[in-house]
Design a protein around this nucleic acid. Sequence first.
DNA 1: AATATTATTGAACAAACAGTTCGGTAATAA
DNA 2: TTATTACCGAACTGTTTGTTCAATAATATT
Lengths: 175, 175
Amino acid sequence: MDRRQRKTREAIFSAFRELLEHRRYESITVQDIIDKADVGRSTFYSHFETKDALLYAICSDIFDHIFKGDMCNYPGATHSLEEKLAHILWHLKDHKKDITGLLSCESADLFMGYIREYLRELFTLHLEDFDKDVPDDFLLNHLTSSFCAVIKWYSDKKMEFSPEEAARNFILLVS
Amino acid sequence: MDRRQRKTREAIFSAFRELLEHRRYESITVQDIIDKADVGRSTFYSHFETKDALLYAICSDIFDHIFKGDMCNYPGATHSLEEKLAHILWHLKDHKKDITGLLSCESADLFMGYIREYLRELFTLHLEDFDKDVPDDFLLNHLTSSFCAVIKWYSDKKMEFSPEEAARNFILLVS
DNA sequence: AATATTATTGAACAAACAGTTCGGTAATAA
DNA sequence: TTATTACCGAACTGTTTGTTCAATAATATT
């Protein structure tokens, strides 16, 4: 990959991340990004089709780090569900700056949508941990949404709480 | 109130509702609304400051119907939490058309934000029903978010399931 | 080192949308 | 009948998105 290309892409990424620290995703315009990245308009569009494509790329980065990591994937893992969930919260902390901007906005759904997919997979693997007399689909939806809420709560509280404690409380509530 | 005013307002409202049946909130422009309502652009803006203000008005309408109704408000009510929740789901059905358009969009948060407020109040009244060893704030957040998820699920499933059953399943999961 | 390729630039452009302004007209109230 | 009020529509400003294109500068190729 051309060095120029790499540098430009990196400049756009980090400009976007910096902007996300202080502003909601929707309020950030392409103009803001290219001003901060100091890159031409046409250059931006030669790298990313739209602003949403840039968001998607950022999200992929984050998720690769969080979910493709050591313990969260999948069948072989010997860790408990609680440990895995705590681990996810830990990893979220590494991306605190980006995530705050991504979750405190109207498109939080976009970001959360990705997380939901991963979580649903994860909970599916642990379905037998729960002995509840409701349809599986209802239960899965409940678990996934509830943990999304924990993530949101965790982010709203500036991630100042212990991931282990949050995970434990969650397990207490859904068991 | 002037009859003209009433008529115009009503035309805008129902145009917006009709558009919401088939399209997401974001994709609907002011132009679409005034075309369908057959009113002038300036007339629209003399009634509503922005498109969001119109959304807010519609939401208020719906919530007045759902929450300000017979049994959901508050201290005096003798009904169980489960009954109240089922009731909310019933009332949602009356606004099925609007709500589908409001929930299947990126600003679902906007709509859900209102619901959350009401639900949090409701659950606060019933906090003693739950004997869980987690902080109240965490529990409230969990209950509220979980029932929001039920609402979303209920809407996604075209509201074809029994509200009573959904409410019962929910109570089973969080008790 | 000379040449070909590729990325970047900046400026201009079209299209879509939000929201405002204003003079004229028609319905309603006094 | 007169005064008020709401509506109209067209034109206008401003913002944002996304495209185009010729010129230029950085890389690759030979």
